[in-house]
Computed example of a mutant assay.
Amino acid sequence: MGRLGIGLQLYTLRDDMANDFEGTLRHVAKLGYEGVEFAGYYDRSSVEVKALLDELGLKAFGSHVSLERFRTNLQGEIDFLHTIGAKYAICPYVGAEERESADQWKALIAECEAIAVEVNKQGLQFLYHNHDFEFHHKVNDEFVFDAMFAKTGENAINVEMDVCWVQFAGQDPLAYIAKYAGRLPLVHFKDFTKDAEGKLVTLELGLGDVPLQEVIKAAEKAGVEWLVVEQDNCQKPPLTSIENSLNWVKEHYTNVTN
Rank of each mutant, 00 (worst) to 15 (best):
F80V: 01
A60R: 05
G32S: 14
E160L: 15
K106I: 11
F135K: 05
V117M: 02
V144T: 08
K30V: 02
I84W: 00
S66L: 11
E37C: 10
V65Q: 04
H27C: 11
I84Y: 02
E134K: 14
Y88D: 12
V47W: 03
H129V: 10
E118Y: 00
K151A: 10
A86E: 02
V28R: 06
D79A: 05
E118G: 02
E100L: 14
F143P: 03
H137W: 09
Q122F: 01
G32H: 14
L52P: 05
H136N: 10
E55K: 09
G23M: 05
V117I: 13
H64N: 09
G23D: 08
A150H: 15
K50E: 00
V159W: 12
S46P: 09
A86M: 01
D141W: 05
Y42I: 10
R26P: 09
A86H: 00
V159D: 13
Y88R: 07
G153H: 06
K151M: 01
A110D: 14
H136R: 10
N120P: 02
D132H: 12
A89W: 01
T72M: 00
I90A: 04
E134F: 13
Y128K: 09
F61P: 11
D132N: 14
E160S: 13
W105F: 07
G57E: 12
G62R: 06
R44Q: 13
L56H: 08
A114F: 07
E68T: 06
V159F: 10
D141E: 14
A107L: 07
M148Q: 10
S46I: 03
D132M: 11
Q75N: 07
A110Y: 02
Q125L: 14
D141N: 14
G23N: 07
T24F: 03
D141V: 06
K87A: 03
A51K: 03
